[in-house]
């Protein structure tokens, strides 16, 4: 069953065609990788999913509801969470608060005027947040300010902030960019473990090692168009992909 359908999406920036009739179907429970050379339109496409950009034409349908024209918070509330290329976290709040905020947002909706309750009295929320911090291996730092974390830890924190909401679809924009090989492998393990929860994931990634160890299906984007789609093994052998993306080199 498909969870996200993208049909004929076009997006131009002052004459430059960033997305050209993109069609994409993401199956529920899959890890769907989007790869392609720099400037292929990967991040533009992702931005069209979360409400940062609105496609010029075409439809993006998630679980039967259209995402086009919705604002980022509305899209999150229907179950789409996003990890950014550079970690977006609440830098001057503690790790626990960082994870409690999405938990509260999931529980209370987009706005709630609960100014009388005590935030440290929200036992269920705190326990859930602590549990997630444990999952990503940051439990011992729960009272540290998020700014003081290393880049890899910030990314794991951001992942915890997304996972605590039990999203139906998780978008990962280059989750291992700038990481050491060891950190990358740790992240792959973490993402595989998350895979067991059955969350559908869309991963944008440059690192082929990451892509081929995670993805069920790969779409290759070049110059705003999907030029190939298929299982990792098919993509590896596809001459068009090697031409456009890998520059003809063999894997």
């Amino acid at each position: 069953m498909s969870i996200l359908q993208v049909q004929n999406v076009n997006k131009s920036f002052s004459g430059l065609r960033a997305l050209n009739n993109v069609n994409l179907t993401v199956e529920e429970g899959h890890v769907h990788a989007i790869i392609g050379p720099n400037g292929a339109g990967k991040s533009t496409l992702l931005n069209c999913f979360v409400g940062r950009l609105t496609p010029d034409t075409g439809t993006v349908t998630f679980n039967g509801t259209s995402l086009v024209g919705k604002s980022p918070h509305e899209i999150n509330q229907v179950g789409v969470a996003r990890v950014f290329q550079t970690p977006e976290i609440f830098g001057d709040l503690t790790l626990l608060e960082n994870v409690m905020i999405p938990t509260l947002a999931k529980r209370d909706g987009a706005f709630a005027l609960n100014a009388w309750a005590r935030v440290d009295g929200e036992r269920a929320v705190i326990e859930k947040a602590e549990h997630l911090l444990e999952d990503v291996g940051l439990a011992d730092k729960r009272d540290v300010l998020a700014n003081s974390l290393s880049r890899g830890d910030k990314r794991r924190l951001e992942l915890a902030m997304c996972l605590v909401q039990d999203p139906k679809l998780l978008l990962l924009d280059e989750p291992t960019a700038g990481m050491s090989r060891a950190d990358t492998n740790a992240t792959i393990d973490l993402l595989k473990r998350i895979g067991e929860r059955g969350i559908t994931k869309i991963v944008i990634e440059h690192d082929m090692h990451v892509v081929f160890s995670l993805a069920h299906k790969i779409s290759v984007l070049a110059q705003g168009t999907v030029i190939a789609e298929g299982k990792p093994d098919d993509i590896k052998g596809d001459p068009r992909v090697q031409e456009a993306y890998l520059g003809g080199a063999h894997l």
Binding site: S71, H73, I101, P102, F111, Q165
Partner: peptide, 8 residues
Amino acid sequence: RLSYTGVN
């Protein structure tokens, strides 16, 4: 981050 977290 807050708006991508579902908060208006």
